[in-house]
Nucleic acid binder design. Structure first.
Length: 467
DNA sequence: CTATGGCACGGATT
DNA sequence: AATCCGTGCCATAG
């Protein structure tokens, strides 16, 4: 499963080797890039070759993606996950590679960051010739995450058919603040609904109600609606509450900026993924493909000329050069080790959490770092470091911290949320404990209260009956 | 009296 | 060794 990896050079485990590998492990893709560039600049024995060869067949690799020859046999083995290091570009902004390193450019940047956030998610999924259109579209969002110009305008501006713009928009709508890039609240709601339908049951008629009676709905004219849809008022209210709980007509608002009352503040937004998980259909098999993003393109190696030159140099210089060489080869080894470890780590994680990745939060299986460490035969702290401060992009386009795979209570919280969402009368914490227990979640009353707080759900006595 | 939130403790995790 | 998380106890609000 891992035979296509550069494994040859993993044996001399000196302490220096170990220490440096450790520190490299904990770096994010962006930090790694800095580190490599610094090393490259300071050590003349290192060189970066402007080409990439497959470690197995030594064919030249295309600028993006993996070896088309060697990836084949791996994909066809029916593995749960294929993991490899990819040099795929990490998208940092629109068009030109601009320095967005600067700190808060206040308002302007704040507004733009929603667009950047979305762009990063979708960029890998759309052909490069469409990216500038996507970028254009994203620059015309208002603070609600809705489009300020029509699709026709975009199409005629770029001289392309409207249908093509619409396809790009569809991709965008499925990205993180779901529904972003819609022309109006109605379209945003429908986009969210479509995505929701893929993972969970949705009340019948919800779609019809949004499509046909949105203006009535927003004015709470339930009786009018009931007559129009030919169902009871109670049914209408049920759907209405479902909509207000699960959907958001202004995608830009909820997840962005404003922190809702009682929300835990650690909901950090990650912009740049370090790892990419995509779903690839290989024949009839669905395979998860994991890419460990590697920030630089090319082959890092010890400069062979430098190695030669050392022979023909005075004694005093020789010692210095020897050290440079030593450092260089150590660095390369550490880098290989880091990649190797990351690959094995992700392989295990993805295999274990496959359902979570494909079907959503509810299917997160409990997992501890210690467990993975044992399976991998590495120290726990190694896993800890590797997992900390990194972000993963899921096939859905969502970017989450890698540590989320180890969240012990996420699935319990989701169950709790559903329980409350479907309740017919406000349930007290104690009652919720019982219901949770029936579903196999044994938690204390006090804990239910905490989960509620985390999800920003009001206590029962303040909760409005849900229908 | 009941339902919740605060504080702090202990065991697990990192 | 430091931190996180679930929990129990107790005060407080309704």
């Amino acid at each position: 499963m891992l035979h296509h990896l550069p494994l040859q050079t993993i044996k001399p485990l000196t302490t220096a080797h170990l220490a440096q590998t450790m520190s490299l492990l904990s770096l994010t893709a962006a930090e790694l890039q800095e580190q490599i560039e610094a090393e490259l600049a300071s050590n003349p024995a290192l060189e970066m070759l402007d080409e990439l060869r497959c470690p197995v067949c030594h064919r030249k690799l295309p600028r993006q993606g993996i070896c088309p020859v060697c990836s084949q046999p791996v994909l066809s083995q029916g593995e749960e996950a294929v993991v490899f290091v990819s040099t795929r570009e990490v998208y940092t902004g629109f068009g030109e590679p601009q320095d967005d390193e600067d700190r808060e450019d206040n308002g302007a940047l704040e507004e733009e960051s929603l667009a950047v956030h979305v762009f990063r998610q979708i960029a890998p999924d759309i052909p490069s010739e469409d990216r500038k259109i996507a970028a254009f579209l994203l620059t015309h969002l208002n603070e609600d995450g809705l489009l300020t110009i029509s699709l026709q305008e975009i199409a005629s501006y770029h001289h392309i058919p409207v249908e093509r713009v619409r396809n790009i928009q569809r991709v965008i709508q499925r990205a993180d603040p779901v529904g972003v890039g819609s022309v109006d609240p109605k379209e945003a709601l429908l986009a969210q609904l479509s995505l929701l339908e893929e993972t969970q049951p949705v009340p019948a008629l919800t779609r019809k109600m949004i499509e046909e009676g949105l203006d009535l709905l927003s004015r709470h004219q339930f009786h009018e609606l009931a007559r129009m849809m030919k169902v009871s008022v109670g049914e209408i209210q049920r759907i209405a509450s479902f909509i207000s709980k699960n959907l958001n007509p202004y995608p830009g608002r909820s997840s962005w900026g404003e922190s809702k009352g009682g929300r835990i503040a650690n909901q950090q937004v990650f912009y740049k993924p370090d790892i990419l998980i995509t779903l690839s259909t290989n024949g009839d098999q669905e395979v998860l493909v994991v890419e460990i993003l590697f920030p630089l393109w090319g082959t890092l190696r010890v400069n062979p000329l430098y190695r030669k030159a050392i022979q023909e140099v005075d004694e005093e210089l020789k010692e210095d050069m020897r050290q440079d060489l030593e450092r260089a080869s150590l660095f390369v080894k550490c880098l290989q080790q880091r990649n190797h470890t990351m690959q094995r780590l992700m392989q295990r994680i993805v295999a274990w959490q496959k359902d979570f990745i494909l079907k959503g939060d509810k299917f997160l299986k409990p997992l501890t770092r210690a467990q993975i460490a044992k399976e991998l035969g590495v120290h726990e702290s190694t896993v800890s470091r590797a997992v900390a401060n990194k972000a993963v992009q899921l096939p859905s386009g969502k970017i989450i911290p890698l540590a989320d795979f180890f969240d012990r209570s996420l699935s319990a919280r989701i169950v709790l949320k559903e329980l409350i969402m479907h309740e017919t009368k406000p349930l007290s914490d104690a009652e919720l404990v019982k219901l949770m227990a029936q579903r196999g979640y044994e938690v204390a009353r006090r804990t239910v209260a905490k989960y509620r707080a985390m999800e920003g759900i009001l206590p029962a006595n303040l909760r409005r009956a849900c229908y």
